[in-house]
Amino acid sequence: MTTQVSIGRLQTSSPDLSRQKSELTGGIPRTYAPGETIYDYEDDTPRLLFLVSGWAVSSKMLPNGTRIVIEFALRGDMISTPSVELARETVQAISKVTVMEFPDFTSHASLDVSSRLYRIVLTEMMRRQARMSERLANIGRRDALERTGHLLLELATRLGPSRLKPNFDGFECPLTQADIGDAVGLSTVHINRVLRDMRVGGLLSFRNGIVEFLDRHKLAELVDFDETYFAPHMI
């Protein structure tokens, strides 16, 4: 006997939250408070989690106590817990997070899944791999300002157009300077200095949880940001 798992087309390239909610079917909604662990690599329950709202962080701790941020998960993103377990990462909610939880069909031979679900999962894995490749280039070959600017441009692009107010170029950002530093391999002191330099240079401002691009085009040119790596064609 097989179990049918269904999922509507997840529009991960669009920040339209209501559309994402309406097109996910067959999953179990779960909500996590800020700071709560969504998944730990010691958990042996394989799942696929699609973020409906909120911010989450996937990270790992080194033996010396240093935290490395692997990925920030945003609405529309998928978290594959078998992948997280293999990489020994921990996923935590940064803000209040809502996910739709599905059983991981790659770990359950008895699950009967649609070809659409296969395409969505494979595409999400491709997108994450593209972001990881860019993150590696970011840390390995870019200076402090380029690393930080590139990350903030990536987050803004993934979130889509701002809903804060008309003609505002920026986004609400629940990240701390420590979060940003752990994602780009810099200390909090260094991040503070970089953000100040970008503000003085007329590139962006990050105050009170709001990132505002003062000159997005100039910043994108300066850090060599190309957003085409976000959206490989659907398989």
Rank of each mutant, 00 (worst) to 15 (best):
V121E: 09
R147Y: 04
S110D: 14
T106S: 08
S115D: 15
V121F: 15
H150P: 00
L152D: 05
E124I: 02
Q177W: 14
A137I: 13
D169M: 04
L155K: 03
P161T: 05
D143F: 02
S115F: 13
S115Q: 14
T148L: 12
L151A: 02
P103F: 07
F171K: 01
L155W: 00
S133Q: 15
L151H: 01
V121S: 07
E134H: 14
G181D: 06
Q177I: 10
P166M: 03
T123P: 03
D104G: 04
L153H: 01
R142S: 10
R116P: 08
C173V: 09
G149E: 02
A130H: 12
A130R: 07
Y118I: 14
F105Q: 07
S110N: 13
T157H: 00
T176I: 05
Y118C: 03
S162E: 04
L153C: 05
L153I: 00
F171M: 01
P161W: 03
D104T: 01
R128T: 11
T176A: 00
I180P: 05
R119W: 13
I180M: 01
R131F: 07
G140K: 13
M126C: 09
S133E: 15
S133I: 06
H108Y: 07
M125I: 13
S115H: 08
D169K: 00
Q129Y: 12
I139P: 06
R127H: 11
Y118N: 07
E124L: 05
F105K: 05
T157I: 00
I120K: 07
D143H: 01
L117P: 11
D169F: 03
R127K: 15
G160A: 13
R141S: 10
S110M: 10
T123A: 04
E124N: 10
D179T: 04
A144Q: 14
L145P: 08
V121W: 02
T176P: 06
E154W: 02
A137H: 11
T123M: 07
R119K: 09
K165A: 09
L117N: 10
